[in-house]
């Protein structure tokens, strides 16, 4: 099984973590929601798989390109 890193597309902060390690993900599923540009920006799985790891905590600031989660595909 290959793993895929899910990266932040934008600088902001983690507002809410929606999925937990072990959860099965669909392509359009939001793993977490970031807060940036005064908007709630969902971080989508982009492929079906299983969530292996969440690398950030709620309220933590994140940078563009930072790895947020790891998905097994």
């Amino acid at each position: 099984m290959a793993t895929k890193e899910v990266k932040s597309e934008i600088t902001g902060a983690v507002w809410k973590i929606v999925k937990q390690p072990g959860d099965v993900l669909g392509e359009e599923d939001a793993i977490m929601i970031l807060e940036s540009m005064k908007m709630e920006i969902p971080v989508l799985a982009e492929c079906t798989g299983r969530l292996v790891e969440i690398k950030v905590k709620e309220n933590e600031p994140v940078a563009e390109g930072q790895v947020l989660a790891v998905v097994e595909v």
Binding site: E9, I10, S36, M37, K38, M39, I41, P42
Partner: peptide, 8 residues
């Protein structure tokens, strides 16, 4: 597209 950058 408000899903990306909040549309910015």
């Amino acid at each position: 597209n408000p899903m990306v950058n909040g549309g910015a």
